[in-house]
């Protein structure tokens, strides 16, 4: 079990590093998908199959593919991007190193698990399957959170629309009521052209 955990978490980290260091944006998105798969495998390992598969369906199936579309359509000037970051590279690496060393030091000094139910205990349902366990709490204990998440999604939708929608004048718009109100006798003219002359 530990071997499998190490395997997936190693590749998860590898994928994450790939996202940051890829020179090509498409490679970065593919690394992201790779990282998502490994994260899903970790979730399945601790018994949260439903969440794991949802991660694949939603993130890999929808979000990452959308990313791929967007990234492929964008014309990113990679050299300009690199030269903008290059002068600060020393500091970026310095602060990242400090952060990693801090966390490694903590890992070295602390017991792995202590007190409380622990994250594992809370995640794995006591009985029944994943979906049932999720359904039991999602609309009861976590109902306010569920509504709040819904409001955030509505907000995101309104925000995306209001930022991108531009009212242009002179656009031929479809008016469905007008279309439905059209009648054949108003618009269709039947002609019977004599042969050899055509319609004038």
């Amino acid at each position: 079990m530990l071997g499998l955990f190490s395997f997936f978490s190693f590749f998860l980290l590898l994928g994450a590093v790939g996202v940051v260091f890829s020179r090509h944006t498409v490679h970065a998105v593919l690394s992201l998908i790779f990282a998502f798969f490994n994260a899903a495998a970790l979730l399945i390992m601790i018994g949260a199959e439903f969440v794991g598969f949802m991660l694949i369906v939603v993130y890999v199936g929808a979000v990452a593919v959308l990313f791929l579309f967007v990234v492929m359509m964008l014309d990113v000037d990679r050299d300009a991007l690199r030269s903008a970051v290059a002068p600060h590279k020393k500091w970026v690496i310095f602060f990242a190193a400090v952060f990693v060393i801090e966390i490694l030091a903590l890992v070295a000094y602390s017991p792995p698990h202590l007190g409380g139910a622990g994250a594992m205990g809370a995640l794995v349902p006591a009985q029944g399957d994943n979906v049932r366990a999720l359904g039991m709490v999602l609309y009861t204990t976590y109902a306010p959170l569920f509504y709040a998440a819904g409001m955030i999604l509505l907000l995101a939708m309104i925000g995306a629309i209001v930022l991108t929608l531009r009212q242009r004048s002179g656009v031929r718009r479809q008016n469905i009521a007008q279309q439905n109100a059209r009648r054949a006798e108003d618009t269709v003219t039947l002609v019977n052209p004599p042969s050899g002359e055509g319609v004038i």
């Binding site: 698990h113 202590l114 007190g115 409380g116 139910a117 622990g118 994250a119 594992m120 205990g121 809370a122």
Partner: peptide, 10 residues
């Protein structure tokens, strides 16, 4: 938050 949750589970 994930550190806190990982440590205490609440």
């Amino acid at each position: 938050m994930s550190f806190l949750y990982g440590q205490w589970g609440v």
